[in-house]
């Protein structure tokens, strides 16, 4: 008899990954635009730091986040005193950890997409009377859209599967911070292989569905419906 497992961890994963993707988009759009279009001192270093979550071991990433956002760390203390927000051992910590881990997967394609937009097209738009916001919304964004959407899908899939960084920052508290990845680990440790299998199937389906959805809805060439 197959037992339908508790879908709580899946639901939490979905929420955390969605929130993390929003955070990535909000921070990643200006960052990728800046890296693609401006030159400033220390640009190489900044780009390296922003991409580093891709090469750092997730536990190291989690440890660094803990050092920055722990209740006694300066950033964590500031957040708690200003916003009353404590990210450690809280689901927002899972959002933070998976967002940071997923960030480079958005930044790299987004930067490439913005770099591929001919700046002379933007100049042409300015000569036709458009201000900066309008140029961005009607020229830059539509032309870069494919790369941005691909980056968002990758970031979402990465956030959905985060394990190490989330574990370090948010902990593994069932019903509170236990996302599907953590629940699968616990299930395996507890010898509950049916639960591990169900959760694995669930998380894999969501990730594949997200990528497929983006691929199918994306125009095959810029602008074509």
């Amino acid at each position: 008899m197959i037992e339908i497992p508790d879908v709580g961890p899946l639901w939490l994963s979905l929420k955390v990954a969605t929130a993390a993707t929003c955070v990535v988009a909000l921070a990643g759009l200006p960052a990728s635009l800046l890296l693609a279009r401006r030159s400033f001192p220390g640009k190489g270093l900044a780009a390296g730091v922003l991409v580093s979550p891709l090469v750092l071991p997730p536990t190291v990433l989690g440890y660094l986040l803990l050092r920055a956002f722990g209740r006694r760390a300066w950033l964590g203390a500031w957040l708690e005193s200003q916003l009353g927000l404590v990210v450690v051992f809280h689901w927002s910590g899972a959002v933070l950890a998976s967002a940071v881990a997923a960030f480079p997967l958005f930044l790299l394609p987004a930067r490439g997409a913005f770099e591929a937009v001919d700046p002379r097209l933007e100049d042409a738009a300015r000569l036709l009377g458009r201000g900066e916001a309008s140029v961005f919304l009607t020229v830059t964004l539509p032309l870069a859209w494919r790369g941005l959407a691909a980056g968002l899908a990758l970031a979402f899939a990465r956030a959905l599967g985060d394990f190490g960084a989330t574990m370090m920052v948010a902990g593994d508290i069932p019903g509170l911070t236990q996302t599907a990845s953590l629940a699968i680990y616990d299930a395996v440790q507890a010898g509950d292989s049916s639960r591990a299998a169900w959760l694995s199937l669930g998380i894999a389906s969501i990730a594949v569905a997200a990528l497929t959805f983006v691929q199918r809805t994306l125009p095959t060439r810029a602008g074509r419906p």
């Binding site: 042409a124 000569l127 032309l143 810029a222 602008g223």
Partner: peptide, 21 residues
Amino acid sequence: VPLRRRRVGMIFQDDLLFPHL
């Protein structure tokens, strides 16, 4: 004066049309 208020039209060697429109 910023480009958008100059009222100067321009055509280019490689047309620079907006490919998404």
